[in-house]
């Protein structure tokens, strides 16, 4: 990788970290406060609050990491920082 390419690569990577982490952390910290209200609804037979805490946050975690891997790999390729297989 060219030396002058490193700075834009790292800036891009840092923004990707923030873009992936912030919405995830916000959901993890805010969703538990609304469990009682969500529990009045149901989804797939589950009380919605219970579903969101278990299955919901699991799916959100998987989505966060999967989208991060996809985007970060695109950033690596864009700047030529990717591993050569």
């Amino acid at each position: 990788m060219e030396l002058e390419e490193r700075k834009p690569y790292w800036r891009h990577t840092k923004w990707q970290m923030v873009a992936s982490l912030l919405p995830f952390l916000l959901l993890v910290l805010v969703l538990p406060l609304y469990v009682d209200r969500l529990n009045h609804n149901k989804f797939l037979g589950f009380p919605l609050g219970y579903f969101m805490m278990g299955h919901g946050l699991l799916l959100i975690s998987i989505f966060t990491v999967a989208s991060f891997i996809n985007r970060q790999d695109a950033i690596d390729h864009w700047h030529g920082a990717n591993e050569d297989i």
């Binding site: 982490l21 805490m53 278990g54 946050l57 699991l58 975690s61 990491v65 991060f68």
Partner: peptide, 21 residues
Amino acid sequence: GFDAWCIAIGIWAGFVMMALL
């Protein structure tokens, strides 16, 4: 009951942090 989810969520969020940071 429900309250045990806090440990499970912590484990998933921990792996998210591990993958990103």
